[in-house]
């Protein structure tokens, strides 16, 4: 699960710069809450003041690998969906460009964007 922790850390560092640690923490808290509907085991996870996930490794260890990955993906999905809800698709992709595997310019964001 180290790779998942690493992904969350990248997201935290990247998004905390423009929207602040408090902003990132607010989004992540909401994403985590939404994710517990399908993956109740995520309730054991806490979010630190700076937006770091606490207790993730321990909680994931009690799950099968597929459940652990599914829960992790769900949090990230909700987090990015929330970001998109608030600032739109194009801006979200630009904010995540540094850590996203596909360059923004190749995503055709202008055509797909909401605004």
């Amino acid at each position: 699960m180290a790779v998942v922790q690493e992904a969350f850390e990248k997201l935290r560092i990247r998004l905390s710069q423009p929207i602040g640690a408090a902003g990132y923490r607010a989004l992540l808290t909401r994403a985590l809450t939404l994710s517990t509907n399908n993956s109740p085991w995520l309730e054991a996870i806490q979010i630190e003041k700076d937006g770091t996930l606490a207790g993730f490794t321990e909680a994931a260890a009690s799950q099968s690998l597929s459940s652990a990955i599914e829960g992790s993906v769900e949090i990230v999905t909700h987090l990015i969906e929330l970001l998109e809800t608030f600032v739109g698709r194009e801006l979200s992709l630009r904010l995540l460009a540094d850590i996203w595997p596909i360059p923004v310019d190749e995503m055709g964001t202008k055509e797909d964007s909401n605004g």
């Binding site: 710069q17 929207i19 408090a22 630009r94 904010l95």
Partner: peptide
């Protein structure tokens, strides 16, 4: 939006 993070960078100092 194309200027964000390229030409315009937002940094939170809170």
């Amino acid at each position: 939006a194309t200027k964000i993070e390229k030409d315009i960078r937002f940094i939170n100092l809170s």
